Every structure is written in C-alpha cells, then in structure tokens.
Simulated assay, not measured.
Amino acid sequence: MNKKLSIKSWAEEDRPREKMLRKGVAALSDAELLAILIGSGNATESAVELAQRILHAVDNNLNALGKLSIKELTSGFKGIGEAKAVSIIAALELGKRRNAADIPQRDSIRSSNDAFRLMHPLLCDLPHEELWVLLMNRANKVIEKIKISQGGTGETSADILLILKAAITSLASGIILFHNHPSGNLAPSAQDDQLTQRLQQSAKLMNLSLLDHIIISDNQYYSYADEGRLGL
C-alpha cells in the first residue's frame, strides 16, 4: 500500500511556503497558492494534490472556483472542511475587491471597459440577476453606484422611476445601466432592449443621458454603446 508523501517530506525547494519565501509569490502555481490557503490535505493527498484536484474540477478556472459555495466545497472534496472552504472563498473575494479598488483612482470612466472593470466584481459570480446603475457627473466621474433590484436566475425587474430618482437626488447628468446574465449568454433579450429604450426616452425628458447599458457575464460584457444600439 502506497503511503502519502507529506509536503514536509518534500525537497525544500518544492514546498509552497518555502518556495514563495525564496522565489517570490509569482513563482507559485495556482495549485500551490491554494495549497497554502488550505494548509493540509487528507489521508491520501497532500495539500498540493488536493488543491490540484479542486482546480481540475473547475477546469483550472479561478472564476469558476469563485462561484463554488461553502457547501459545494465541503461536500465535494475530502479534506475541505468549513474553515478551509471559508478561507478559499475569502481569498477569492479579496482578489475581486483588489481589482475593484483600482478603478476609483481614475479621474473618470472613459470607456465601456473602465465601467465593466468597476462593476465586474459586484456582478460576475452571482447566481441571480441584479440591476445596478452607475451615476456620473458631466466630467464622466463616478458619483455613486446603486443596486436597483434583484431577481431570479433569468430576469430582474426595473423601476424607471427609482433609477431617475437616484440620478436626480445625486445631481447626476449621466447614467450607465448594468445587469448580469448568470447563464453566461451575453446576448441582450427583448426585455433588455425595451428597458434600454424606455430608460433612454425617460432620462431625456429629465435632461439626463443614458450613456450605456452593459450586460456582464463572467469576464465578458456586452455594451449597447459600443454596438451602436443606444438609438433603439
């Protein structure tokens, strides 16, 4: 019967913690970084082997790993208890927040990609749809981001009056509308088109501009402005 070789018995240059201290964090693979988080494996796997199996289960996609729940991690992988699952999810959430923290340093939103990067951490991993607005001043600087509504897996409701009230209260001059598609399909629905048209027409009456409507899914997005579809 083969006995598991623990990480402590590995050559020092192969141990994740020692490797990081000697070569820097960039030298570590995703599995090695994950192994440092979970600390130990199980009766038949080292921490690195367990981390490799977890990553293999999500096709080595960290975004997919970030969508797993505590229950999915603890029930799907022997050696992952609640504390380790919490550590994994917390670390991935910190990574998302770090990405989001880069945006406020910019003076303004200059493109759909700037807007996408700001809102992506809030919407990318949700199993349900949410509708948000980004309120802008005349220099295209962000005043505020506000969640308008939350729905099911296929749709969310949109209250035009709530959007306009938020914009007027914040003294905004421009609005960028956001929602996510948990299905992964970026194609706008007929309801998305109708919402875009209704909000654009209503905003115009209040001397406000709908600058874009962006649909987010994973690491991709669809921009009505980029596609030249704000004149629906």
Rank of each mutant, 00 (worst) to 15 (best):
E13I: 13
K96S: 11
A85H: 10
N63L: 15
N2D: 09
T44Q: 12
E13V: 12
R106H: 13
N207W: 04
A167F: 02
V142T: 12
A31Y: 01
S149M: 04
G79R: 02
L50R: 01
I88Y: 08
Q200V: 04
M20F: 02
A167S: 06
A35T: 06
A139R: 12
I214H: 01
A158V: 15
A90K: 14
D59E: 14
A51H: 06
S9E: 15
L33S: 03
D193E: 13
L33M: 10
K8S: 10
D212F: 00
Y222E: 04
K141E: 15
I163V: 15
L210N: 03
S111K: 10
S108K: 14
E12T: 14
S111Y: 09
A91W: 13
S40P: 00
Y224I: 01
N185T: 08
A115Q: 05
K84Q: 07
L34P: 00
W10Y: 15
G39L: 05
N2F: 10
H128F: 15
N60R: 06
L126I: 02
S189V: 09
F178G: 01
L162K: 15
M136I: 07
G151T: 11
L37P: 01
L55Q: 07
S209N: 11
A166T: 05
A90N: 14
L21F: 12
A100E: 15
L37W: 09
L28Q: 00
K23Q: 11
S111I: 08
N140Y: 12
I88L: 09
D102I: 12
L37M: 10
G151S: 10
A90Q: 14
P104W: 08
P104C: 09
I176W: 01
A225C: 05
L62S: 09
M206C: 13
L186R: 08
L33Q: 03
L195Q: 06
L92F: 13
A187S: 12
L199Y: 08
I163C: 02
Y221R: 06
V25F: 07
A115R: 04
H181Y: 06
P16I: 07
H128A: 06
L199P: 00
N137W: 07
I163W: 05
I80D: 07
P182T: 08
A90P: 01
V86S: 07
I143C: 02
L195I: 15
L62P: 10
I36R: 03
N180G: 03
A31V: 02
L37K: 06
